[in-house]
């Protein structure tokens, strides 16, 4: 979600900069602008006093400018806080199947998941954290692999053991996970 918002907003800002800079560059280097364009030739100025103060007499101009700027400030503030906030799930709702539910602290589930993943064959260290909603949590797992293990095998072990146990113990219908694997830094050695 945040990924899409970030990319759309970055794209809009980028497009605006590109169009503005590109058009000034093109006209400044002698390309003929269309008649309706803000600049009408390479000897035009960037923004003349007449253009800048064109609507200043109208009653609506300053309120509009101030409102637009205020909206822009609020939008940027919201965007910045969304980017800076680390989204982390605090608890998971365990459906007990009889209309009631129990709350499970995410940290507990994260700890269990990470320690069980860390005990798998060939995994030096594991970290886990939960995102998503409390009825539909998602896991992000980072594994640090030891040299002798095949990553494909490690992924299979992780899925069939650690992730499945976590899923079953929390009674979740689905438990999507994103796994990233790194290798332990080490010197070249014969591992067999």
């Amino acid at each position: 979600m945040l990924r899409i918002v970030n990319r759309v907003l970055i794209g809009i800002v980028g497009l605006a900069l590109l169009l503005l800079g590109g058009s000034v560059l093109a006209v400044g280097l002698g390309a003929p602008p269309p008649s309706w364009w803000i600049h009408d030739g390479r000897h035009d100025v960037l923004l003349s006093d007449a253009e800048r103060t064109r609507w200043q007499g109208s009653g609506w101009w300053w309120p509009t400018v101030i409102a637009a700027l205020a909206v822009l400030v609020l939008l940027a503030l919201w965007w910045l806080t969304a980017v800076l906030r680390r989204r982390r799930l605090s608890e998971v709702l365990v459906d007990t199947g009889d209309g009631e539910g129990a709350l499970l602290r995410s940290r507990a589930l994260e700890g269990v998941l990470a320690s069980e993943a860390g005990e798998l064959e060939g995994v030096a260290h594991a970290r886990a954290h939960l995102t998503g909603r409390r009825t539909a949590p998602e896991a992000r797992v980072q594994l640090l692999l030891e040299p002798h293990v095949d990553p494909g095998t490690a992924l299979h072990e992780l899925t069939t053991r650690a992730l499945m146990h976590a899923r079953n113990s929390a009674g979740l219908a689905a438990f999507p996970a994103e796994v990233r694997m790194k290798g332990v830094k080490h010197r070249a050695e014969r591992v067999s």
Partner: peptide
Amino acid sequence: AAVLGLWLL
């Protein structure tokens, strides 16, 4: 500005 915009895109 144009290069920066292109990079952001």
